[in-house]
Design a protein around this nucleic acid. Structure first.
Length: 362
DNA sequence: TACACGTGGAC
DNA sequence: TGTCCAAGTGT
C-alpha cells in the first residue's frame, strides 16, 4: 500500500516554482539581473506598456522610451504630444496620457521617487490593482498579490476552477494569495507570469515541463486545456466611414487631432465622417467634409480599395475619397507634408489609411 | 457591474 | 478569413 498522495503546501509550491524560475528565468530588458536592485521607473514603464500587450510588441517601445527619457523626470518634462507620438502603434492610448500624467505627479510631488506601497501606487493614474501590486513586489520586494491574466489561468488550472471568468476573479485571487510567499515576492510574481507565458499557455500547455505538473488538479482531471472558462462575449458589429484625403499645396495632407477622451483619444487622424453601421455615399459624406466646397481646387474622387481594421469591440471599414484644396486648415487641423507623416501620432488604423492613399491617390 | 478601449500574432 | 487573446484601467 502506498501512502495517499498529500497535496503540497503553499510554501512547497512556491519553492518549486522559484526553483524553476531560477533555472529558466527569461531575460527581459526591464528585468534586473539576479541579485541586483530593480529600477522602479523601468518596472513601472514596462508594466504599463505590458497591460493587455504582448512582450514582443513592448520590447522595441520600451527601448525607445528609455533611450529618449532615461528617468521619470525626463518623461515628465516632455510635451504630452511627443509621448503620444512615441506611443503610436502600441494601442490603448489612454495609457500614454496617464503615463505622462503619472510621471508629472511623481516628479512634482515626490521628487521623482515612486511610492513603494501598493495603496499609494494605486492612487496614481494608469496604475490599477495589478500594476500597483506588480510594482510593489518587483521594484520594492513587498509581498503583494499580483494577479494578471497569466495568474488567473495558472490558478484556474492548478486548482481546477471551472467557474467562468470574470465571475471567478475573486476566487482566483484568493487562491493566488495563499500561494504568494513573503520572501522573494517579486521573483515569485514574475515566475507565475513567466510560467503562464511560456508553459501554462492558453493553448497547448506544455505540462510535461511544468514544475507544478504533479500538483495540478486541472491536469489530473484532464481539463487543463479548457481552463479558464470564460463567459462568451458580445458579437462585434461593423462600422463604416469615409475618409477625406485632402491634398494641399506642396504635397501636404490634412490631418487633425482627435478629442482627448474616447477612442484613439488625443491621437492624430485623417479626417473622416462619423463611423456608423450604414455605408456612406460620396455626396452625403462630402456634405460634412472638413473643408468647405469653395476651398476645393478640384472634384472628389473615390479611391479603389477599402481599409479594414478591427478594434476590441467593433470592425471598421473605411473608404477613402481624395480632392485637392488650398488655404488654411480648419480648427484642430494641420497641413502635414507627406515626408513628415512618420513624425505624427498616427494610430495603426490611420497608418493603414495613409498606406492606401499613398498607393492609390498619386 | 459591464462596457469602452488597440494592436498584431497564432491557429 | 475569423476568432482568440495578451503582464488591465477607467468610468
Amino acid at each position: 500500500m502506498s501512502a495517499p498522495r498529500r497535496s503540497p503546501t503553499p510554501r512547497a509550491l512556491a519553492q518549486l516554482l522559484l526553483g524553476w524560475y531560477d533555472r529558466e528565468r527569461r531575460r527581459l530588458p526591464w528585468r534586473a539581473a539576479p541579485g541586483e536592485a530593480a529600477d522602479p521607473y523601468r518596472v513601472w514603464l514596462s508594466e504599463v506598456m505590458l497591460q493587455q500587450t504582448t512582450v514582443a510588441a513592448v520590447i522595441p517601445y520600451f527601448h525607445r522610451f528609455l533611450e529618449r527619457w532615461p528617468t521619470v523626470a525626463d518623461l515628465a518634462a516632455a510635451p504630452v504630444e511627443e509621448v503620444m507620438q512615441a506611443w503610436a502603434g502600441l494601442g490603448y492610448y489612454a495609457r500614454a496620457r496617464n503615463l505622462h500624467q503619472c510621471a508629472r505627479m511623481v516628479t512634482d510631488w515626490r521628487g521623482g521617487l515612486f511610492p513603494d506601497e501598493e495603496e499609494a501606487l494605486r492612487q496614481l493614474p494608469g496604475i490599477g490593482d495589478y500594476t500597483a501590486a506588480a510594482i510593489a513586489a518587483i521594484a520594492f520586494g513587498h509581498r503583494a498579490v499580483v494577479v494578471d491574466g497569466n495568474v488567473e489561468r495558472v490558478m484556474a488550472r492548478l486548482f481546477a476552477v471551472t467557474e467562468p471568468l470574470p465571475g471567478a476573479k475573486p476566487r482566483l485571487k484568493a487562491l493566488a494569495a495563499k500561494l504568494t510567499p513573503a520572501k522573494r515576492a517579486g521573483d515569485y510574481a514574475q515566475a507565475v507570469m513567466d510560467l503562464g507565458a511560456t508553459l501554462c499557455s492558453p493553448r497547448n500547455p506544455a505540462c510535461g515541463l511544468c514544475p507544478w505538473r504533479d500538483a495540478c488538479a486541472g491536469r489530473l482531471a484532464g481539463i487543463e486545456a479548457e481552463l479558464p472558462a470564460r463567459t462568451p462575449k458580445a458579437e462585434r458589429p461593423t462600422r463604416r466611414g469615409l475618409v477625406f484625403w485632402i491634398i494641399g499645396d506642396d504635397d501636404s495632407v490634412l490631418l487633425r487631432r482627435r478629442p482627448p477622451q474616447g477612442l484613439l483619444g488625443g491621437m492624430m487622424e485623417v479626417p473622416s465622417t462619423e463611423w456608423r453601421a450604414e455605408a456612406w455615399e460620396l455626396a452625403e459624406a462630402v456634405a460634412d467634409s472638413p473643408l468647405a466646397a469653395a476651398k476645393l481646387a478640384g472634384p472628389w474622387r473615390l479611391l479603389p480599395g477599402l481599409v479594414r481594421h478591427t478594434f476590441t469591440h467593433f470592425h471598421l471599414e473605411l473608404t477613402v475619397a481624395t480632392a485637392r484644396a488650398r488655404g488654411q486648415p480648419p480648427a484642430r487641423g494641420l497641413w502635414c507634408p507627406l515626408d513628415r507623416l512618420s513624425d505624427q501620432a498616427l494610430p495603426s488604423v490611420m497608418r493603414k489609411v495613409v498606406h492606401l492613399a499613398l498607393s492609390k491617390a498619386y
